[in-house]
Design a protein around this nucleic acid. Structure first.
Lengths: 307, 307
DNA sequence: ATGAGGGCATAAGCTGGTCTTATGAGCGAG
DNA sequence: CTCGCTCATAAGACCAGCTTATGCCCTCAT
């Protein structure tokens, strides 16, 4: 997106076109409580501030969001839609906060969690959010690394609870399966594979260069094992995001966790290619040093991950 | 969340603990470009402003995000994690913007889209984002309603392209399948059904009161048809969000689009219950008045939805 | 009928954050 | 050795948003 194009659009980055988080939270409160004043009280400002904030949000969006009446305020149709989109933004922000909070409390924490990248990115923020809702006083810290790193942190006592996504549990650790993940083959919608009628065979997959995470990543391990160590890299990238971006741009097929590509599949930026004869399921496990059954906050978090 | 509890946590709503969108965008730019100054230029501020913004973000989060050096800046490990979470927030904000933009351009638009609620909520913002990337000048408007409303808007010429999720295509409209959706049975993880070994039968499902959207919604139609008009409501609610919230809180089983519950399933706030003997698949279709094949921007959008 | 109370809008003044410009200091390459 | 890139700091301007203080409208109960 060039500057020239920004000029032409008359826009200056999202931040100027999307209301800030405080305003979005206010909108959600109004939707829930049905009154500007009540919403103002909930978010901790005065009623005029809320009134003005809401008004400027409507001006910014160019759409009326709430019908004000002398006995309360209700969302307009457009307001209901906007509120749903706002809720997503606020949820993402809450997940951000849960993660950041855990990161911040590194030093003086009582529950120290070590997790592999995919879990830290896609699942942990949500769990931490739930944990915080139930035990608001728990200070959590978060360290991310591959399976070996997680094992090391647990065994040296630098972490209380770990989450790994590999096939085998590192020695010295006990574990329990908390969820199952599936690796799926994805391509951009224009790729020839997207038009296949029959599932891909293991041989075809093994014979095709793929966009992959680097060796040593949990994802790569599972794939190598499933194919018998044969996965051929077309490109090797060091983050899931980079792999996704390459795949979306049509650079080639990739194999990724279904956790990571939900959004892309829904929006059809990527399509999932069925495969037969290969088991790409993998267990996501919570791990802890053998014998040291999780207790206290660790046990609490563990129970949340299993529902 | 009471005020007292807010006191105790020392927090004052997300907005005070999460950096604003401008800061998050700056962080993404720094991550991508590897330089504070370059990132500053990209987001359209001076370098000192970027420096200060980043510093205050680090202070706010209590974590160092980038390693500055005389020849550039790189993310720290924590920074990489934070950047991924930030990316989610920014993506949600971009989707919000795409939707809001469409809503705003209602009057003077060139492409007027009518869509059913589920599609408008979960899919359209992403498509509009993609459309905007390819054709930045296209002004799009968005109207949401049920299938009948969409048909009416198309037939009266008030909309150019529609999206519906029902079983049958309203008369007078041509259509094409753009994606498939599946309704899934979900419960809170504590529900007895979550521990079943065998799939649910159609009879069991039909015999159990469910948390549902109101009659007339696309979701409800499909379910009623699949069960032979027998779905028994436990509660009827008017928004997908409300239904999800009830299901998560354990009020009972529900049937929802898999589009709507991806996040909840991943975080195990809900679990999916297999069902046999019922086809809960449904086609998502683009529709237009018979004979009036989509052209111009409508055609463009259509092609994006199919990849 | 008439006041009490809740709901929202407007006005005026203050405060604080954030931007800009200007400048300095470290490091590497020509 | 000096140019060019990086980032940091300082000082001042500016603007957005808050609070307090009102006023109007509507409803409900006395």
């Amino acid at each position: 997106m060039s500057e020239a194009e920004e000029q032409r659009d008359g826009r200056q980055s999202l931040a100027h076109r999307v209301p800030d988080l405080a305003a979005l939270e206010l909108l959600l409160a109004v939707a829930r409580l049905g009154s500007l004043g009540a919403a103002a009280r909930e978010v901790g400002v005065t009623q005029p501030a809320a009134s003005s904030r809401l008004r400027s949000m409507e001006r910014q969006l160019g759409v009326a969001l709430v019908d004000r009446s002398p006995r309360g305020s209700r969302l307009t149709d457009a307001g209901a839609l906007v509120t749903d989109w706002a809720r997503r933004v606020v949820e993402a922000a809450a997940a951000f906060d849960a993660g950041a909070r855990a990161l911040r409390d590194r030093r003086d924490s009582r529950l120290r969690v070590a997790a592999s990248m995919t879990i830290a990115e896609y699942l942990l923020p949500g769990w931490l959010l739930a944990l915080h809702a139930e035990r608001p006083d728990t200070a959590v810290s978060l360290l991310a690394g591959n399976s070996a790193k997680v094992a090391e942190l647990l065994l040296t006592g630098e972490a209380d609870l770990g989450f790994v996504e590999g096939l085998n549990v590192p020695t010295g650790l006990d574990s329990t399966v908390i969820a199952r993940d599936r690796l799926i083959v994805v391509t951009a919608p224009g790729h020839p594979w997207a038009r296949r009628r029959r599932p891909l065979t293991a041989q075809e997959l093994a014979g095709t260069p793929l966009i992959l995470r680097e060796r040593g990543s949990g994802t790569r391990q599972v794939l190598d094992a499933a194919l018998g160590g044969l996965a051929r890299p077309l490109i090797e990238l060091s983050s899931t995001t980079a792999v996704k971006a390459s795949a979306v741009s049509g650079a080639g097929p990739s194999v990724l966790s279904e956790l990571a590509v939900g959004e892309e599949l829904a929006m059809r930026r990527l399509v999932s290619i069925p495969v037969e004869g290969v088991s790409l399921r993998r267990d996501l496990r919570a791990v802890w040093p053998t014998g040291h059954r999780p207790t206290g906050p660790a046990r609490e978090l563990l129970s949340l991950t299993r529902g």
